[in-house]
Amino acid sequence: MAEQLGRIDLRKLILTLLMAVVGILFLMPFAWMISASLKFEDDVLSFPIQWIPDRFNVIENYKEVWTGALPFSLLYWNSIKVTILTTFTSATVSALAAYAFAKIEFKGRNVLFMIVLATYMVPPQTLLVTQFLLYRWVGLYDTHLGLILLNSFSVFGTFMLRQFFMGVNNEIIEAARIDGAGHVRTFANIAFPLIRPALATYAILRFIWTWNDFQSPFIFLNSDKLFTIQIGIKSFADDHGNIYSLMMAASVSAIVPLLIVFIIGQKQVIEGMQLGGVKG
């Protein structure tokens, strides 16, 4: 062991190189996507694959995607709006409920918690039909508000944040309460700041899930002008199904920004997923 310190382990180095080769193969679809999005349509499927094109058509491709009939600028704005509002609402609703379930002694707490937890077992697709009818009935169908509300009540978020609030020392809470602080102040000034890292992790996960959500906007939106990226890109692909360079430029536009967010926040995303265990 001691002789390995300070010098590079040869076996480890070889395995790292092998892993790098596998990793490059693994990311090939992305590389192909980006490369195709830069090309003239005629060159997209030429073989052998030109990873770096001879001639570029980048500006034209991306211009069509971003300013065409269903402009990605609009889709982005809609997605950003829906995602940020959903993330904010969901984090707030979950944090409030989580605090109560962890730190307030009220009648029926355990029963209410079990009811909320039980709804986690209901797969979202089985709710689509009746949620759709409900939305049509109350006028939330084809609105951003409806879409935001749909993903704002997360059992996963409530459960996860509750675990963190349980970790907050009761004496700190009690001390604040004896000093005359109500639960609102105790929550806002004391408990909330203590679990801020957990809340940030949950917010990042919710952001990614909402950003990538296809099913809810697909079922609950109808007007083009309200479309988010995920359904926008499908409808773009339906319209330009045979123009692969444009479809790849659209895919790059849908994937790459979120990949950048992920790479910046990788630690929190990965730890959050490990914490959550299951996607919810």
């Binding site: 679809p29 992305f30 950003w211 296809f214 895919s251 849908a254 994937i255 990949l259």
Partner: peptide, 8 residues
Amino acid sequence: FISSAVAV
């Protein structure tokens, strides 16, 4: 895993 399933 993090990439949009639609785009994939």
